Deep mutational scan, measured.
Amino acid sequence: MLDDRARMEAAKKEKVEQILAEFQLQEEDLKKVMRRMQKEMDRGLRLETHEEASVKMLPTYVRSTPEGSEVGDFLSLDLGGTNFRVMLVKVGEGEEGQWSVKTKHQMYSIPEDAMTGTAEMLFDYISECISDFLDKHQMKHKKLPLGFTFSFPVRHEDIDKGILLNWTKGFKASGAEGNNVVGLLRDAIKRRGDFEMDVVAMVNDTVATMISCYYEDHQCEVGMIVGTGCNACYMEEMQNVELVEGDEGRMCVNTEWGAFGDSGELDEFLLEYDRLVDESSANPGQQLYEKLIGGKYMGELVRLVLLRLVDENLLFHGEASEQLRTRGAFETRFVSQVESDTGDRKQIYNILSTLGLRPSTTDCDIVRRACESVSTRAAHMCSAGLAGVINRMRESRSEDVMRITVGVDGSVYKLHPSFKERFHASVRRLTPSCEITFIESEEGSGRGAALVSAVACKKACMLGQ
């Protein structure tokens, strides 16, 4: 009897593995994704193909990295998701002549009506938060230079001027797309009239992360975010950046690689679950690469896999709870928690219980395998993109072996128990001629924006502006 049951459990697990095998990517698959990513990057950089390229390769006008001589107080704003952060950054000489960066910050959550109302409502709310922060720190009387981390696709015309191309991540505030974001912020500050600010720089969160990590390690020339969304930036040779005049030196390019796949480059790798996630998203047909990796989508992918296993009578005796059938019910943090389970399955059992399920031991094991399959594919897909960037940098610099540091931020990278190990191992397999160091950014977005502002202020002083 026991043997029969054991055989049935083994057969069930084997069927589960057959279904989950769809998520496995072979090294040849990853090399294919990497080569296609490089081709799209090239198209994004070139003037004649930029418009139709899915990977936009947006110039950021960040050319210099901090040298350690900029000092002063800077205000930093960070808008990239449902939370908005205001930070005071003091850049100065530390002990023994070292450079020191001290920060104080406060988080504000953005109400739904500000995210989806008008641009005026959104930026009025942001300036209200700045006003509140300055009151708390008794700094209303000071006109501070301000660095703005704005983590949406922007076409820069200068370091302090950028046109919002399109909202992502659930934002829909009308009247912002096609307009200068810094102008919208300046107008809102003017409307309030109770404080003055000098907006000197606007950067993407990947750029802010790279600059913040450069402060720790001067070989950091790539910034990457794996959180709600997924994106990367890197220092490109100016001669390859056709959208900006000049051939000397390097400029940081914001790849906006989340949109890779929007022209069909990933079609052969998309599964039924991916198509369902895409169809029910706020932007169907867009940001397809990001939807395979980002935390906004990972939990939902797992939920759809679990429903398939229920329908195949391989999980929960073929019956799903009402909660499990509800879109968004299986949160991405559950994926991390399930994979963090120590082996007694308590954590998995508790999560499934909150979803109205009474799982068996085998159910718990199957749910864990589903989570591992989805998150491992995410790590491997992400590795193909980064390997594409790094191999490109090595080739354009004609280096036999390139040493490089990548600064990384984002909740999936930082909080998932195995993502970074799987990701690092896969990147290294795909970049055999590179020695890569990964560092995690601390308060990256805010500190990085302030350091970019410090560079901009120093330049302005040198130019006598």
Rank of each mutant, 00 (worst) to 15 (best):
M8S: 11
Q18I: 06
L25H: 09
E28Y: 09
K32H: 06
V33F: 06
M34P: 04
M34T: 06
R36F: 06
E40P: 02
T49N: 06
E51H: 15
E52C: 09
A53N: 01
V55M: 05
M57E: 12
P59E: 01
R63Q: 14
S64F: 15
E70P: 15
G72D: 06
G80S: 00
R85K: 04
G92M: 06
G94C: 11
S100E: 14
S100V: 08
S100D: 14
H105I: 02
M107C: 06
T118I: 03
M121N: 08
F123K: 00
I126Y: 05
S127L: 02
S131Y: 06
H137L: 13
Q138Y: 05
M139Y: 10
K143P: 04
L144H: 10
F148V: 07
S151C: 00
S151E: 04
P153K: 08
V154G: 03
H156E: 03
I159K: 00
N166H: 13
N166M: 12
T168M: 01
G170S: 01
F171R: 03
F171M: 02
A176V: 09
N180Q: 02
G183T: 13
R186E: 03
R192K: 06
M197F: 04
M202Q: 00
V203F: 01
N204Y: 15
D205S: 03
S212E: 03
C213E: 13
H218Y: 13
V222F: 04
G223N: 00
I225M: 08
A232W: 02
A232K: 00
C233N: 00
M238T: 15
N240T: 09
L243Y: 00
E248Q: 14
C252A: 14
E256F: 00
E256T: 05
W257K: 06
A259D: 02
F260D: 04
G264Y: 10
L266I: 15
D267F: 14
L271V: 10
Q286N: 13
Q286G: 05
E290Y: 00
E290K: 08
V302W: 07
L314Y: 14
T332Q: 14
F334D: 07
S340L: 11
K346D: 07
I348D: 08
I348R: 11
L352H: 06
L352R: 01
R358C: 08
R358E: 06
T361C: 11
D363W: 02
C364E: 10
C364G: 08
D365N: 11
V367T: 13
R369V: 10
A370H: 02
T376M: 12
G385E: 02
A387M: 06
V389R: 03
N391R: 10
D400N: 13
R403L: 13
V406T: 07
G410A: 01
G410L: 08
G410T: 00
K420P: 09
R422Q: 13
A425V: 08
V427F: 01
T431I: 12
P432G: 11
C434N: 14
T437M: 11
F438W: 07
S445L: 03
R447K: 10
G448L: 05
A449R: 01
L451V: 03
A454R: 03
V455G: 15
K458Y: 15
